[in-house]
Amino acid sequence: MSHGFLSPTGVEVTFLLVGVVTLGAAVVSVTTRQLVHAALWLVVALGGLAVEYLLLTAEFIAWVQVLIYVGSVVVLLLFGLMLTRAPIGRSPDADSGNRGVALGVAVAAAVALVWLVVDAFRTTWIELDGASAGTTEVTGESLFRHWVLPFEALSVLLLAALVGAIVLSRKRNADVDAASSGKAGAARPAGPSTRTAAGAKAAGRAAAGRAAARPGEQGAADAASGDAGRRAEGGER
């Protein structure tokens, strides 16, 4: 089968057009000053990559890409942007000071890599006709026949990452309990649940109210409960 370098096929033209859109979306995503727009342009780039996988007959991976990246990773990133209170409008400090150096490194790497791969694979063609190489049947067969052990190891890794993310993102209750139970009964905590600082202050006020029935100790109890509230606040972070 003869290949023409200057007579691209329909698949190649489609790949080129989708590739231009993908690359443009990626460039906008790393250069825009609006943080939420960066995440939304990332959706365009990742969706374009899914189309490229389809054009390379890797159907299963294309749908996995749509499900995992466009469906969950970008949503996670948007949640992260919202939870860190990213500004909605243009933020002038989205880029750091070493922008010029970064641009130089990226352009140099791009020139070197493109020159290298074009020189290396100048006369290589992918035969795309015939049966698809990436249907669910083919992928599943190779995955569960030859790649079972890495697959299972990967599931353990995902479990470890899940547990790690939970451990990292929960508040440190042990510190709060230690701080408030250290005060001798002045502000006894309601329980080991996730008490907020406001809850600690309320407990302190209740203790102060109880202590008010016994005049003479009120000043000491007030000081103690205020101290406990401060320490509970400090222990939470």
Binding site: H3, E12, I126
Partner: peptide
């Protein structure tokens, strides 16, 4: 398809 297209992208 020419292999260069996906690799360059």
């Amino acid at each position: 398809m020419h292999l260069v297209y996906p690799v360059v992208l």
